[in-house]
């Protein structure tokens, strides 16, 4: 018999290392033709860090995004970054990019002051141009500034590379006396609603409809946010229903050694109705209110699906994965206990 149920969950995900002390650096270089190269240390694992940091750089330098090239090839010249983990990049790295952009604008003003015959404080940077305040016709484009720096147009040579660094807070280890470990960059919030059909003969759980909505501070790139919400559902489904590296835990023997035995969900396992949504409560610590959330989209489905299973068959499954074997044994035990 197929039994239907619905369940929900509300979860969180924190951004960055919990003891803080979690810095990132960035650099923006002006090329002689006026285009920009953004260097970041964040590793792009497919989550899109390079994409969003380039968006920030283009906005901050007020230039068309096509003029910004981005490199995260961590090499000798890569800026320091603790790395891409703990959903930290969206909170931390934009600050580094912002500081790098401010630094570059300052260096551009300083370099152009000789060419425009004005004090750097009397120069303003706007929309890819540096100009004398109140006399916008006395101006230079980024290409003119870059070209001059290459061919020695100014009185003194200049290194037109802006650099920036940022961290949420000084490192704060766990205090054994009070239990305090108060440094937290930001926290994102998610809610999940799941509807299931439990087949009481086979023990199979079919997730028929699932909604996840995440409050992300500011959706820097809503397309990537959507992909992260629905992408995180993949391990969310697998964790809840099928994936198990140690099926006989705590004994590690008979561990699956191929993808036939280690059952990752496929698109056929995705709910027929997979719904998503984005909410924004600008976070005080983020550039434009942005904070990380992506890992969190894996946190909501397990408890929401388990609550739906309870609604369907009246049994709390207190461990995952809830494989058909687990469901059938639970049903048998319930029947035996009357």
């Amino acid at each position: 018999m197929k039994k239907k149920g619905v369940g929900m969950a509300c979860v969180l995900h924190p951004t960055g290392n919990k003891g803080a002390g979690d810095p990132s650096n960035a650099a923006i270089q002006l090329k002689p033709d006026g285009t920009l190269v953004l260097l970041v240390g964040a590793v792009d694992l497919g989550q899109g860090s390079t994409t969003i940091l380039r968006q920030f750089a283009a906005d901050l330098m007020e230039v068309p995004i096509e003029h910004v090239f981005a490199s995260n090839f961590a090499d000798d010249f890569a800026p320091l970054s603790l790395g891409s983990f703990a959903s930290r990049v969206t909170l931390i790295d934009p600050h580094a990019v912002e500081n790098a952009a401010e630094d570059l604008k300052k260096k551009i003003r300083e370099y152009a002051s000789d060419l425009l015959e004005a004090h750097p404080d009397d120069l303003e940077y706007k929309e890819g141009k540096v100009f004398v305040k109140g006399a916008p016709d006395r101006s230079m484009t980024l290409a003119e500034v870059g070209g001059a720096s290459m061919f020695g147009g100014g009185a003194d040579p200049a290194l037109l590379v802006g650099t920036g660094a940022w961290q949420p807070a000084r490192f704060h280890p766990h205090d054994p006396e009070t239990g305090a470990m108060p440094a937290v960059g930001a926290i994102s919030f998610g809610a999940c609603v799941a509807e299931v059909e439990v087949d009481t003969e086979t023990g199979m759980v079919d997730v028929t409809k699932l909604t996840q909505v995440w409050e992300v501070g500011k959706a820097v790139n809503p397309l990537l946010v959507r992909q992260q919400i629905n992408g995180g559902l993949h391990p969310g489904l697998g964790t809840t229903l099928t994936e198990n590296s140690y099926p006989y835990y705590p004994n590690p023997d008979w561990a699956p050694e191929n993808f036939s035995d280690y059952a990752l969900p496929t698109f056929l396992d995705y709910p027929e109705e997979t719904l998503w949504g984005i909410e924004e409560v600008p976070h005080p610590a983020g550039v434009k209110g942005a904070k990380g959330f992506s890992e969190g989209s894996t946190n909501g489905p397990p408890p929401a699906i388990m609550a739906a299973i309870h609604d369907a068959i009246g049994i709390w499954i207190d461990e995952y994965p809830a494989t058909p074997e687990v469901i059938l044994r639970a049903l048998e035990a319930k029947e035996a206990s009357g």
Partner: peptide, 22 residues
């Protein structure tokens, strides 16, 4: 629990959004 102070709370917003979408 570890004595941090919550800022930019958004659980209510996420739940309201999820209810509406669902």
């Amino acid at each position: 629990a570890s004595r941090y102070v919550v800022r930019g709370a958004g659980a209510l917003e996420a739940m309201r959004g999820a209810a509406e979408v669902h």
